[in-house]
């Protein structure tokens, strides 16, 4: 069986403004091509037949990674391989550097981008989960306006985001002032590089008595979009982590999530994994927090 994409108009703009103009003119039929590691497979399988492809790979300035006034600013076209190797990312948002190697394989991370993964919005994908737990903002542009959306409001449902057909994600901003020192990203997949069945990301700060002062725990693969656990925050803030408390967090998360079942895992199995991986993420982030944010 051969697997080839349907025909499409191909545009390669020279500037972001031109890309936005083309997107606007294409109305609902335009699609931005970045790394192509999710879009091209679905085009090859004819699950998507966009009439107009706007290739942004040649655009200058869309792949810069910089730190400015308390914000990590990561251009939407930054390659995933770059996220795992970039020193600024490792220093300011080590959670992302830890999550990146779980995305596909080196051969796909060489092309795949941070922005492409965020807008594709797979429910178990590493980038959306990491950016949710980091309380990141998505900078979105159209011909007429630029707006900033918190990642916590960005996901609508499976593979669907707040982004409109005439809009393009240009940058991701992560506030790093007061970012918790303890971090962890863990996941379970059937084989290395497969889609995660469940993944979990956690950020924790502690005081000098090793009591948790702030915590954010998020899970992927357990709902249509990545979710923040409110119960974990309620249980953990103000407490020292004990094995009894950790078990309680695991049970609370299992009760909190409502996963769907598919060919890869039953509802019960995903729920079980959610508890196990929530505990692993909390434990690792806590260990790092009490060690002063070291690499643990």
């Amino acid at each position: 069986m051969s697997v080839k994409p349907a025909s499409f108009d191909y545009y390669r703009p020279d500037t972001v403004d031109e890309a936005l103009q083309l997107l606007d003119e294409a109305e609902d039929e335009g699609k931005i091509l970045a790394g192509g590691q999710s879009l091209v497979p679905i085009m090859n399988m004819r699950l998507a037949t966009p009439q107009c492809i706007i290739d942004v790979n040649g655009l200058n300035g869309l792949d810069t990674i910089r730190y400015e006034s308390g914000l990590m600013k990561i251009g939407a076209l930054s390659r995933q391989r770059c996220l795992e190797q970039n020193n600024l990312v490792k220093e300011k948002v080590p959670l992302i550097a830890e999550a990146a190697p779980f995305i596909g394989h080196t051969q796909t991370r060489n092309r795949g981008t941070i922005g492409g993964s965020l807008v594709h919005a797979d429910p178990s994908a590493e980038i959306p989960l990491s950016l949710l737990v980091l309380d990141a903002q998505a900078v979105i542009r159209s011909c007429d306006e630029e707006r900033t959306v918190p990642v916590s409001d960005f996901f609508v449902t499976y593979l669907t985001t707040d982004i409109m057909p005439n809009e393009m994600l240009t940058e991701i901003q992560i506030p790093t002032e007061g970012i918790p020192q303890g971090y962890a990203f863990v996941e379970f997949s059937r084989r290395h590089g497969d889609f995660a069945l469940v993944d979990a990301a956690c950020l924790i700060d502690t005081d000098e008595q090793r009591r948790i002062t702030s915590v954010r725990l998020a899970l992927g693969g357990v709902d249509a979009i990545p979710v923040l656990s409110e119960d974990a925050t309620e249980l953990l803030v103000g407490e020292k982590l004990s094995s009894r408390l950790l078990e309680e967090v695991g049970r609370a998360v299992q009760a909190e999530v409502d996963p769907d079942e598919d060919l890869h895992a039953s509802r019960e199995y995903r729920r079980h994994l959610a508890g196990v991986f929530a505990k692993r993420a909390v434990r690792l982030a806590y260990q790092r927090a009490i060690q002063g944010g070291g690499t643990g």
Partner: peptide
Amino acid sequence: GCEHGVCGACTILLNGSAVRSCLLFAVQ
């Protein structure tokens, strides 16, 4: 092989980086 980026048989070096050639258009 699979033509959707999974199997790796079509991997080539593009400007020195290993990538799936079935997930790129020649025009790119």
